[in-house]
Design a protein around this nucleic acid. Structure first.
Lengths: 311, 311
DNA sequence: TTTTTTATTTGACTTTGTCAAGCAGTTATT
DNA sequence: AATAACTGCTTGACAAAGTCAAATAAAAAA
């Protein structure tokens, strides 16, 4: 991607977007209070213990201008001012009941406008808009991604999921362990086995998805291997989602299911490089049964078979 | 995804982004000419046969104000005005040499600013920014995606590619033909075969990528099946990229490679539902050798084996 | 304590934007 | 063709928004 091209693309977007948003904002905020007054009230509402300085810095306005505008708002009984306890030069600004009411009206109108922009989009398009905005927030504005990610887990395996899980395995194990494409090929085989020769009544997948992003962020599955024995497979959690308890949650779900389905034994296979996972498995009652050599994945590895008796 | 939440997300972005961009713009455009003057000159530059009305509408400014500002620009020799041939009330505005020079300087500065915003991003992040902006352009501003998509074809199969191709096959054939997951499982098997048991010297992949989007948009591969015979596999072009000649290009690349590698015969397998593909294959010299039943993919299909002799 | 810095205010501006009236040319209607 | 309605632009009179410099009083640093 050509840098020059990219810059032009961004600039064009900036011009159009700011024009559009500016117009909307103007249309909405311009009521009996001027745009600037409304913006200042908004700022007061958003900040705790807001001072005049906060506003002039936050909205990059002239301090004198801010001072005057606030004075006018106080006169019109939209804002209250009390001298700060910490610093007797400064005053803490608060909205009055009237100020809050006014903003509530603007809020509603603004919500309606934005709502109108995304209402006729399909769910998928809305998702894309959300993700795009998150990206720009992160990369252009350097805003922290808020941490309140909502992860949902679904059981149904949909078209493309198998491929995506293979892709995730291939990419991740390449990146983190340096495995070669034999490994991805091997994962293909495991999915072939379960999709074509599996037992759809007893096999089950758990796929974790982040509500704010498209795609799978974590997975696990139970595959029946005999009447009494099942295998735990494809435990994977994307790096960004580790240390959140997601891995444990997936294992717990899988174990509960395995017990409920009446399996007496559950086993899994991993390698000596997956120490974090092994500890997790041990925590949930798996013990190492045997080890073996793996030489196909680009470097010598020790395969580890673990097992747990179910009640 | 909660609508209320989404709206709040967008609004927060709007506020921050317009504030940021507005500040940048102000800083840059505010030279010896005021922001408004520069913006008007920009508008004149962008439009062909720009009139005062175009500007007042395009930038949503008061006609009177525009008139005065233009008069000032004319006086300072940045803009020329000639009475329109079509309408003697209106005047066509053009930039003078000086106007163009001035804008060129601003352009450079603006480019530098935007460049600064994306310079310390990784290639992948830049790609994400580009895509995000394209999305917002399309979904929020309803700008047409420009059609000048640049498609590049690479030969190297990277980690995750196999999984992605399986995913694409699974999703697409489900959506377009209603195939079930046995099909995706079957595709897994084919990738297992080539990744683990294939001949990396003779097998080859062509993966088409859109420069402006991440991910693969089309694929094809040659797999050696004997010394003399190879198979054409995984021809796929995403719906949005069809009718662009991409499919043909992929086939041609593959055929040229097959000939150069000294294969005497090339064959492929498809089904009766892939009529468009079959026509393409026939166009490139493939003929139907035999047909057979396929009953595993969710509905009865006729498998079709095609073959072509290579010189 | 003295000096410097900081948060705000005030006065004197300039720039930007708005509104209404008017003029000359264009289009529509009778 | 004559009239009316409309349109693109201009102008005057204002109002709003924003800037700059100086002043004040409290806080922080030397």
């Amino acid at each position: 991607m050509d840098l020059k091209n990219q810059i032009a693309h961004i600039r064009r977007f900036n011009r159009n977007y700011t024009a559009r948003i500016g117009l909307l904002e103007k249309h909405i905020l311009d009521s009996e209070y001027t745009l600037t007054e409304s913006r200042i009230m908004l700022e007061i509402k958003e900040r705790t213990d807001c001072t005049a300085k906060d506003i002039s810095e936050g909205l990059s306005m002239d301090p004198g201008f801010v001072s005057r505008t606030i004075a006018a708002l106080i006169k019109r009984n939209m804002v209250d001012k009390t001298i700060s306890v910490k610093d007797k030069r400064a005053s803490v600004l608060k909205l009055t009941e009237g100020g809050r009411k006014h903003l509530a009206i603007l809020d509603e109108r603004s919500d309606a406008q934005i709502g109108g922009m995304i209402l006729d989009l399909t769910e998928k398009e809305q998702q894309k808009v959300y993700e795009s905005i998150t990206n720009l927030n992160e990369y252009l504005l350097h805003e922290e991604k808020q941490d309140s990610r909502i992860i949902t887990i679904r059981n149904e395996l949909r078209a493309g999921d198998a491929g995506r899980l293979i892709m995730m395995h291939g990419e991740l194990y390449k990146k983190e362990c340096g495995y070669n494409q034999n490994f991805e090929g091997y994962v293909c085989k495991t999915f072939y086995d379960v999709l074509v020769h599996g037992n759809s009544e007893r096999d089950r997948f758990w796929l974790a998805e982040d509500e704010a992003e498209s795609g799978i962020v974590g997975s696990i599955a139970i595959v029946a291997r005999s009447d009494n024995t099942c295998q735990l497979r494809w435990l994977l959690v994307l790096p960004e989602y580790r240390k959140t308890g997601l891995g444990q949650k997936l294992i717990r779900e899988a174990l509960i299911y395995a017990e409920n389905m009446g399996f007496g034994k559950i086993f899994l296979e991993t390698s000596n490089e997956q120490q974090a996972a092994i500890h997790l498995y041990e925590k949930y009652g798996f013990t190492i049964q045997r080890t073996y050599e793996i030489n196909d994945w680009g470097k010598p590895l020790t395969g580890i078979a673990m097992e747990k008796t179910l009640s």
